[in-house]
Nucleic acid binder design. Structure first.
Lengths: 363, 363
DNA sequence: CGGTGTCATGACATCGGTGTCATAGAGATG
DNA sequence: CATCTCTATGACACCGATGTCATGACACCG
């Protein structure tokens, strides 16, 4: 590979002059510049990042740690939308700022994080983005003291800058959209109750109900997420059994994510219940591969992963410019409700019922 | 950040001795080694990759170009399985060889490839993996003359090493599995006819049919892929209309990918046809988010993206060791047929029919 | 006891750029 | 024409590692 010295002698100038042409940081006569440029082309010269960053003490690298890239089939916790979309958003921003993203993954094994950070340190990354596979508290202490960091989809209690989805607000808005269609008996098939998202979304769900003056029927809230493992279909059957066991059958079902909604579609069909005529179904994530392809297309709340990635990268870049930072609460990113064919108004008899209720409540 | 000089003076030895401790390439007395190690710990020393690679002329970096990471929502050509899984496989292998993967993405725009390669060259990557989003001919000439490259999911006519899926073999095996259940009237809802995968799989489909002595009914082969765009559901309706228009209705439907199968499930339900009792459905890709979650779970052929990534990385590493390489044909990677609930034997009357036919053919 | 080999260590140059400072000319000015 | 600015360029050191070669301290040998 050609060096700046090769270019210099080829063009009959000093290496420093070549450097000046490269960086445009000092006047160079047009004649010299042309000669240098021609030499660079002729030799196929590309400057060495290593030499540059060594002198400048700036690597121009941002490290990103994720589990997405090698969620091995074994550990595959396909909770919802792949973190990949977060990486997308971050990549776009980082690249625009003329830095390079160094992506590493844990392969699903947290104990590999120190190694990855070590590699980042060898490369002298200027900052680190740590991306979790779903909204959760940070499960470890990140090494790499002194390197600015931004957490994405997770948060710690040290005040490290963190970007998380607004689960409560998203479920609230989605539930409002369901109620706006006239539904009053709304079931909620949640993800695992231990998950951060479940707790927050349940809050949003309850908030929307109570605001509409609808008491929460505990029978209509069931958990049914096994991360896609074999027993899950059975779990959903059972949950639906409970939903439809009572006198007042739900006219709409909220699902913990689009993946659950996909399973619910199939199971409802098997039970002779059609979507959306008999019961409306909504998901969460707006995993478009699912939500747009399902028939009927799925109404869902956007999990704004791409926007979160963008925001995280911006936050990190700001942090790199400003230097110090004070602890702050996680930044919550909101998403849109995507209204599609799976959500319609309940049948007339139910609607009447609802209108009566409504009347009663409001008078 | 501490340097080797800091460590040296802290330990009271020369920088070169610190280097020896780091690399273990020359004898160092235990006492000295302990002092150096202690100094490194005390200072939090991490060697500089830049300085090392400058001296050694080896970057230890492998570049990977993909479109996966920022398939913007606009261009989102969600044809099947995300290339992500290819990246996974490659990452695992590269990491095991103590190299670092530098991942860049085109953001769906091919014209950015030269920039990315340029960045790779600045970092002096030792090799490049180019990953296409679906099986296709390479659409551009890759810059970066002299850098060993391996194509994944695509191929050129220059004999560049390439790793592609065995689409023909996969569809052949899958179709055989369908026929083995006793189906004789099998429809095929293909992806866009221009796609490499469509051509190859159709070959496999036809091969399996003809081997079973079943003539191909052209009416039972329809294309219906719009990459998930809005008009697609209608397209599938129409294709299914044609399938069920004739006297002999298909008892099984092969779909171009799992995503199409997901849409087909919904549309069949709407038409009052149950899966798998009335008609069996199979997909392609084994996109487990879909195939395992759909109810009933989907029989499908594995698109071995992870294995392809592994093979590609290995091929590249071999190439780096051996040096020169002679042009070769693309390496085809086969996948397994995943038998799940969506494929069962056709109803008795059809089976009788089949048995008759079979009898006729065999006698 | 001098010669020789081994072990442990250090001095110094080098990789490919860039920052600092010096300097040769070309014009401008008085 | 001497002096003063600029402009354009080069010499040289340095960033943080490591390869090469040299050397001091012993131990061993005859």
């Amino acid at each position: 590979m050609a060096t700046i010295y090769d270019v210099a002698s080829h063009a009959g100038v000093s290496p420093k002059t070549v450097s000046r042409v490269l960086n445009g940081d000092a006047p160079v006569s047009k004649k010299t510049r042309d000669a240098v440029t021609a030499a660079m082309d002729a030799l196929g010269y590309v400057p060495s990042h290593a030499a540059r960053s060594m002198k400048s003490h700036k690597s121009g690298l941002i490290g990103l740690i994720t589990g997405a890239i090698s969620n091995t089939d074994e550990t595959a916790t396909q909770t919802g939308l792949p973190e990949l979309f977060i990486v997308q958003g971050a990549q776009a921003v980082i690249e625009r700022s003329r830095k390079t993203l160094l992506i590493s993954d844990t392969g699903g094994r947290l104990d590999r994080v120190p190694d990855l950070v070590r590699t980042f340190q060898e490369h002298r990354v200027e900052g680190i983005l740590y991306v979790a596979d779903y909204h959760k508290p940070l499960e470890l202490t990140l090494p790499g003291k002194g390197i600015p960091k931004v957490l994405v989809n997770c948060f710690d209690d040290q005040g490290t800058p963190a970007i998380v989805p607004d689960d409560e607000g998203g479920q609230y808005a989605l539930t409002k959209a369901v109620l706006a269609q006239g539904h009053r008996d709304v079931a909620y098939l949640t993800l695992a109750p231990t998950q951060e998202a479940t707790k927050l979304r349940l809050k949003g769900f309850k908030g929307a109900l109570s605001e509409a003056g609808i008491p929460l029927d505990p029978r209509l809230v069931q958990a049914a997420d096994l991360f896609g493992s074999p027993g899950e279909h059975q779990l959903i059957w059972d949950a639906l059994d409970r939903f439809f066991a009572g006198a007042k059958r739900p006219t709409a079902i909220c699902c913990g994510n689009d993946r659950l909604a996909m399973a619910v579609y199939g199971i409802l069909r098997r039970r002779g219940i059609s979507v959306p005529e008999d019961v409306s179904v909504v998901g969460y994530d707006d995993h478009r591969l699912i939500s747009e392809t399902l028939y009927p297309a799925l109404t869902t709340a956007e999990l704004p992963y791409s926007a979160m990635g963008v925001r995280a990268a911006q936050t990190l870049l700001d942090l790199l410019e400003d230097g110090a930072t004070q602890p702050s609460a996680p930044i919550r990113i909101g998403g849109q409700v995507q209204h599609r064919a799976s959500l319609i108004a309940p049948r007339a008899e139910d609607t009447d019922n609802v209108i009566n209720l409504k009347g009663r409540n409001e008078i």
